[in-house]
């Protein structure tokens, strides 16, 4: 899949799925911003990259909506870090978005399944 224009893929997928990605990553445990960006990068196999410009405004937007909450956490001997976690509201949104996404993916699969991809 190396000849796919990653930047175009980025843009397209991010547009619709960025929030879903963040929410689902936070579902498992609270994480801080850098961790989120690394996770996305690694789990997408390098296909998706969230730079500061995109990541933090997104996080702040989600925070403003009340879907996630960021808190400063200070562990002994360490600098304080801002950890984001999913709120109850965010949980419900995540479930709904996953449903929508699955429905959409299923629909696309059904439509494209008819075409023959050799």
């Amino acid at each position: 899949m190396t000849d796919i224009d990653t930047r175009a893929l980025d843009r397209e997928l991010k547009k619709g799925s960025a929030e879903l990605l963040i929410l689902s990553l936070l579902e498992a445990q609270p994480r801080h911003g850098y961790e989120l960006s690394k996770l996305i990068h690694i789990r997408s196999g390098g296909l998706l990259t969230f730079h500061i410009d995109s990541l933090y405004p997104l996080l702040y937007r989600l925070e403003e909506r009340g879907w996630i909450k960021g808190t400063w956490v200070e562990k002994p001997g360490e600098r304080r870090r801002r950890l984001y976690k999913l709120t109850a509201h965010g949980n419900r949104v995540l479930a709904a978005q996953i449903k929508t996404w699955e429905t959409f993916v299923e629909a696309v699969r059904r439509i494209t399944a008819g075409a023959d991809h050799a």
């Binding site: 911003g33 850098y34 960006s37 500061i52 933090y56 702040y60 600098r79 870090r81 801002r82």
Partner: peptide, 13 residues
């Protein structure tokens, strides 16, 4: 807060 947070991100990078 923002400055601190993003600065940490940069530092880690």
């Amino acid at each position: 807060d923002i400055v601190d947070e993003i600065a940490q991100h940069l530092a880690e990078r």
